[in-house]
Design a protein around this nucleic acid. Structure first.
Length: 653
RNA sequence: UGCGGGGUGGAGCAGUCUGGUAGCUCGUUGGGCUCAUAACCCAAAGGUCACAGGUUCAAAUCCUGUCCCCGCAACCA
């Protein structure tokens, strides 16, 4: 049998899974089911990426060893997929013993082939991103996360990415199918044309990683380690993958690094990489500060996994960014699943129950509907093949509309009264047979519900055994007895369900926090193999670790009076202030508050500043301190102020 | 200021590559039906396709310019 091997990203476990991870994995599961219908022997791999400094830190914050910490979070991912009924064939962890062996052998081969070398490097390193910042000087901030960089000299192993520049260019130029959607391919081509530099693939500053053989204290750095999970999860014969399903943030690593690594090791490349978009919340990026991160479990508990699957795959064109909201989810559920598919099944089966003694009547069905069905099947399969789920579902639902219309036109309830049995039977057979085809077609997207309808149609076989050949008209056995009629998609009450999901969300958040350890580091987004949206929290951000009074007293907070304020040229967010704190000269302070305050609002206002903060240059201006402000939702600041009169220069403690 | 992505009836989107009747879902209004989950069917209202030029027999679609929105970065000590 033909094989099909697909993967999700290997999720970074510095935080618990949220709906962004779920989106990717659900899509992968749907593709798996689809490929099975097409007759493939399908292997779906997912897993967790568990090494690196961020994990070390998150673990430390939770008072756990890295291994214990990742055990917990990894299990959380695995449990999530089980809860949602996803058909995962292999769940691989980067901490798995066999994985380390695969990575080490992979390295040895690259070394032998001359694509790896050792070199000393001094540069500015961002601890948070675990990345060297090129072109940065000491004191500069990380361009990605904005945190200060540290000057680090390190001996690293390097991978000769530069050696593959032409080959990579050719790969992407000649194989437009290799990376989709096309917009991503263009970005990658542009990136390659800029010129590729060799990349560091080991670290000596990190302990929590796979050791480079005989080269302690070197451990492998994220991508050399994580990407190989796709190989270590399966036996050698299963490689290469037919499809890597990824989020758009990790395109570069999959479309540039990974092919180069594989070439260096003399291994075949994956057939295709597909990057889907971000999942936004009501058109906003999900983020901790906005408190709008959503998790799958509460949604599943309230409205069902299939409702979520259907929503994600129908509402969002695969490859584009999409927007999640409770309103849209429930709206889709009611109009498409309850009123559409659910109601069609309900009326069809009820008619058969009432008029045909619950047996599928003798007929070959209406030829026009049969023809429409064939068209719908072809068109839907075609869209599916392009991973265009939304279009495939749109086509199927168009066919559902055709049937509703057909039933009204035929009015079988009238045929029954007037005794037109032959026509009645033809009508009901047509409806039931169409429902069968629809059920098979939607099964990759809503497997649980499709299986229910399947059983109601009287089938005793598993829906998983359906193949493309079955998708032709007339395969519904005449005389088969329909079973246990019950609504598959009861209508949802918008207000009630939204409320329940929000409550469930709050509870789930609390549970996850508990799981990760109360003071878990607010590990943010940009996690290597993780899709959209930052991790963690909503509402109140976690309280920082405990300090002593001695720690606090180190911070010198003073009351200051704003003397002048002006916008910083060429910067949207910065204001340049001079602030009197009783010193001979007012301080020059640059603050990122221009979006919230006009300069004239601030002059003569009393503010609180951190007076003993190391000076720093921002946009060419020296800032000798920092203004204290509450950080509101969306990141906008509100300056601290006093109700009583306070003298300039007074210290806060 | 760069780099992306957008601006299409009340809402959300498709259509733009490959010019030629502006389409879908939801919502609204009127009617129908009663098998079905207050569902389903029919009909109607509602858009100068952001703006301005240009190419063309013909532009939502191609070209030029402008405006606006969103994300990211530069800059939130």
């Amino acid at each position: 049998m033909k094989k099909y091997f697909l993967t999700t990203p290997i999720y970074y476990v510095n935080a618990a899974p949220h709906i962004g991870h779920t989106y990717t994995t659900i899509a992968a599961d749907a593709i798996k089911r689809l490929k099975r219908i097409q007759g493939y022997d399908v292997t779906l791999v997912t897993g967790t990426d568990e090494h690196g400094q961020k994990i070390e830190r998150a673990a430390a914050a939770a008072n756990k060893s890295p291994q214990a910490f990742t055990d917990v979070v990894s299990a959380e991912f695995r449990k999530q997929w089980e809860d949602l009924g996803l058909q995962i064939d292999a769940f691989q962890r980067t901490t798995a013993p066999n994985h380390a062996k695969v990575v080490q052998e992979f390295f040895a081969t690259c070394l032998k082939n001359g694509y790896v070398y050792k070199n000393a490097y001094t540069g500015q390193y961002c601890v948070s991103c675990e990345l060297y910042v090129t072109d940065a000087k000491p004191g500069d901030n990380c361009p990605d996360c904005g945190r200060p960089t540290e000057t680090v000299t390190e001996e690293n192993f390097y991978f000769k990415l530069s050696a593959f520049q032409d080959q990579l260019l050719e790969l992407h130029e000649k194989n437009p199918e290799f990376l989709q959607p096309e917009s991503k391919r263009n970005e990658v081509l542009a990136f390659i044309r800029q010129g590729l530099k060799d990349i560091s693939i080991s670290r000596t500053t990190i302990k929590w990683g796979i050791p480079v053989p005989n080269e302690a204290p070197h451990v492998f750095y994220v991508w050399f380690d994580a990407l190989n999970t796709y190989r270590s999860a399966v036996d050698a014969a299963t490689w290469p993958a037919d499809l890597h399903l990824i989020g758009k943030e990790i395109v570069r690593f999959h479309a540039i690094f990974w092919p180069a690594f594989l070439w260096a090791a003399g291994l075949p490349l994956p057939k295709k990489i597909f990057a889907h978009g971000w999942l936004l919340f009501e058109n906003d990026k999900m983020s901790k500060s906005k408190g709008n991160i959503v998790r799958a479990t509460p949604i599943k508990n309230v409205i069902g996994a299939d409702a979520l699957r259907y929503f994600l795959l129908r509402e969002i064109p695969f490859g584009s960014d999409g927007s999640f909201s409770y309103d849209a989810l429930i709206g889709r559920y009611n109009s498409d699943l309850a009123n559409g598919l659910g109601n069609l099944c309900s009326r069809t089966l009820a008619l058969i129950q009432q008029n045909c003694d619950s047996r599928i009547p003798q007929s070959s069905g209406d030829p026009e509907i049969a023809a429409a069905a064939a068209l719908a099947v072809d068109s839907a399969l075609d869209s599916y093949e392009q991973l265009n789920f939304s279009k495939a579902l749109e086509t199927i639902w168009g066919f559902i509309g055709t049937l509703d219309k057909f039933i009204v036109e035929r009015a079988p309830w009238k045929l029954a009264k007037s005794g037109e049995t032959a026509k009645l039977h033809e009508t009901l057979y047509t409806a039931a047979e169409a429902v069968r085809l629809i059920t098979e077609l939607v099964s990759p997207v809503i497997p649980e519900s499709a299986a229910k309808i399947w059983a109601q149609l009287g089938f005793e076989t598993s829906l998983d055994s359906v193949r493309t050949d079955d998708l032709t008209w007339g395969k519904l056995p005449v005389g088969q007895t329909i079973q246990n009629l019950a609504g598959v998609f009861p209508r949802a009450d918008l207000k009630l369900m939204t409320e329940e999901m929000k409550q469930g969300e709050a509870a789930e958040l609390a549970r996850q926090k508990e799981l990760l350890g109360q003071t878990a580091a607010p590990a943010e987004a940009a996690a290597p193999a993780a899709p959209p949206a930052p991790a963690m929290a909503e509402g109140v951000s976690p309280i920082a670790p405990e300090i002593t009074i001695d720690d606090f007293i180190k911070v010198d907070l003073r009351v200051g009076l704003v003397k002048t304020a002006e916008k910083v040229k060429g910067a949207d967010k910065l204001l340049h202030l001079s602030i009197d704190i009783g010193e001979p000269e007012p301080r020059s302070i640059v603050a990122g508050i221009a979006l919230a305050y006009q300069p004239e609002q601030l002059v003569n206002r009393k503010v609180v500043i951190v007076a003993n903060l190391a000076p720093r240059k921002l946009r060419g201006l020296t800032s000798q301190g920092m203004i204290v402000a509450a950080s509101l939702e969306g990141g906008s600041p509100a300056l601290a102020a006093f109700i009583e009169e306070v003298p300039v220069g007074a210290r806060l403690k």
